[in-house]
Design a protein around this nucleic acid. Structure first.
Lengths: 195, 195
DNA sequence: CTTGGATATGAACGATTGTTCAGTTACCAA
DNA sequence: TTGGTAACTGAACAATCGTTCATATCCAAG
């Protein structure tokens, strides 16, 4: 027995990454075995190695894809004219983007310690790049006199932590819609930066 | 060979928890073996079971102890007269307390999924209790007209996420002292609640 | 000096881990 | 119709996992 009818590489490959994403998010990278992922896909464990070099690469690919998509999505996001407009765009974008892929976000923040040193450095660089986007906005706002900040780097970290925190409590179909949440968080961000 | 000279339960017990705390924080619960913990303590793996029922209990004990200490410390913290005073006290306390025990904080936030359902419920209840402390302050401030909030629960989650976020980037001996960080975060919290 | 309980060892248990690989099957192009 | 190759199986590998337990040693009390 081998090779079930109608199976194709273009189908199985993405399914492996989907299953890994879900399982890693739910149970943690170290707690999930290659056999569990294979079972979820409906395949034997050995077949996974047609689609990934090893377990570590599977994790790294998920995280790098996520960060790449994050940066790419922000790059094409309309940012308005003023720094304050850009800050609002960033706040709403961050919440929306992160709420759309909670599993990937969870993994990207929780499984950093399970990366090899080299892979960690790569992901960390991408994260720094994203933080840099916000810092640039804050700096522009500061120079334009639109914002009142005592420390740009610190404000950047505070804002990102606050916005990402939505993912820890937001549940679909809850009391507030995503838009309502974004409205209120933007209010708080605005207040925090003295605008 | 067994029982080295001068070994005592009162020494080994805490050392087991210390080692588990450090290793769980660094590598994650699932990635740390009982033998690694034992090696760190300078003992064989079997000896750990004189101090913990099993690996799960070891994790749960660390988390419950942390949450108990958090609630106990906040209970005796001076809170001032007004709701705004209490909010400042909470902000400064939260940062100080969490920066003092980064490993325990890390574990308490990252290893929830490795708890059994029962243990998870217990920790979750303690966390809710802590969040309730902040919500009570915000509610009092709202009613006294000191604060301008559109949603108390949401503001509470945003503030906690923002404050806890300090742990992800703060490094001892860095650019800012703990006090300086707390000063700036209090400014941002104040702004976020419209005060 | 004897004894008993506390503290620890070290070997062993079955289960599971990530990964490899020879063999088997299904599909597609010729 | 045939042959080649992409896709997959199923077994196997050594290593490691959490946990138990018979055994050994140490220390304090009688």
């Amino acid at each position: 027995m081998a090779r079930k009818t109608g199976s194709h590489s273009e189908i199985t490959g993405p399914r492996v990454r989907e299953a890994a994403l879900t399982l890693f998010a739910r149970h943690g990278f170290a707690a999930v075995s290659m056999r569990q992922i294979a079972r979820e896909v409906g395949v034997q464990a050995g077949a996974l190695y047609l689609y990934t070099k090893d377990k570590q690469s599977l994790l790294f690919d998920l995280m790098r894809t996520h960060m790449d998509e994050l940066l790419a999505a922000w790059a094409i996001e309309p940012k308005g004219d003023t720094a304050l407009d850009a800050l609002e765009a960033f706040s709403r974008f961050h919440i929306r983007f992160h709420l759309e892929r909670p599993d990937a976000v969870f993994i990207a923040y929780m499984e950093l310690r399970n990366l090899t040193d080299e892979n960690f450095a790569a992901i960390e660089a991408l994260r720094r790049q994203y933080e840099g986007e916000l810092e640039a906005i804050l700096r522009a706002g500061q120079e334009a006199g639109e914002l009142d900040l005592s420390d740009i780097r610190l404000s950047s970290m505070a804002i990102i932590a606050m916005l990402t925190g939505v993912n820890t409590w937001y549940r679909e179909g809850g009391r507030l819609s995503r838009e309502a949440v974004a409205d209120r968080y933007w209010d708080m961000v605005k207040g925090a930066v003295g605008a």
